[in-house]
Design a binder for these strands. Sequence first.
DNA 1: AATCATTGCGCAATAG
DNA 2: GCTATTGCGCAATGAT
Lengths: 141, 141
Amino acid sequence: MSKPLQQKHNTEQKSVSVIQSQGKGGGLQQVPQLVPISQGGGKAVPPSKMKKTIADKESDEYRQRRERNNLAVKKSRMRSKQKAQDTQQRVNELKEENERLEAKIKLLSKELSVLKDLFLEHAHNLADNVHPQSADAAGGQ
Amino acid sequence: MSKPLQQKHNTEQKSVSVIQSQGKGGGLQQVPQLVPISQGGGKAVPPSKMKKTIADKESDEYRQRRERNNLAVKKSRMRSKQKAQDTQQRVNELKEENERLEAKIKLLSKELSVLKDLFLEHAHNLADNVHPQSADAAGGQ
DNA sequence: AATCATTGCGCAATAG
DNA sequence: GCTATTGCGCAATGAT
């Protein structure tokens, strides 16, 4: 979860991403194609070398790794989303539980209050009986 | 699990997106270059037309729109993350609140229980006094 | 060394 | 027409 900082990929890329989005309509089968540009510097890029690099990227295990990674990515993101959803769900549940608890507290408090009042009343009655100091209160006797 | 049917964005072009992120690398200086592939269908792509399309994508407002969108995307994702984080935070808070409430309930329950017991005890005492059915118990009055 | 998992990022489609 | 959201693939990096 912690991520200091991540600067893109700035190694030394002249990464020429060639993406061909050929749906399925026409039927053209476009294979990644590169055209080495002759540099002003003079050092022409050895086509063979170039080809090699491209080959690296275009097939072999590269494509396979990409595909695997894409799957992993999808999986990871799905999980992430699921988790977020679960968390939200949890919030809702907790909120409900919370209300339930608050209601219970309210009830208990009320009960307690009633009992306490009864107690006080009784205490007074007892006091009246035991210590009939009050004039009118004792009159009944 | 493959995706031979990658119908991504199928507008109508065989869009060959060439992106060159050349930071400062040493070697080739690849300027966006397109190589129209001869179509199997026969309909050769008019270079001029092609060029136009490329121009559209490579500069003018395209680049600008992309940049704006990239910003929007970043913003959106930041928000999304923030929200997820907030939700998690909320869960924690609610959990704490919950524990607090449960503790309170426990306390109140205990108090109530004590009071009730006292009540029962008193009730018994009163019963003894008020209903002296027992022979010797009534003698005192 | 290999592999999967996570994450930032850009693109394009699409929703608002 | 513009921003916001979303799915997707890529590459770097983390974690095994």
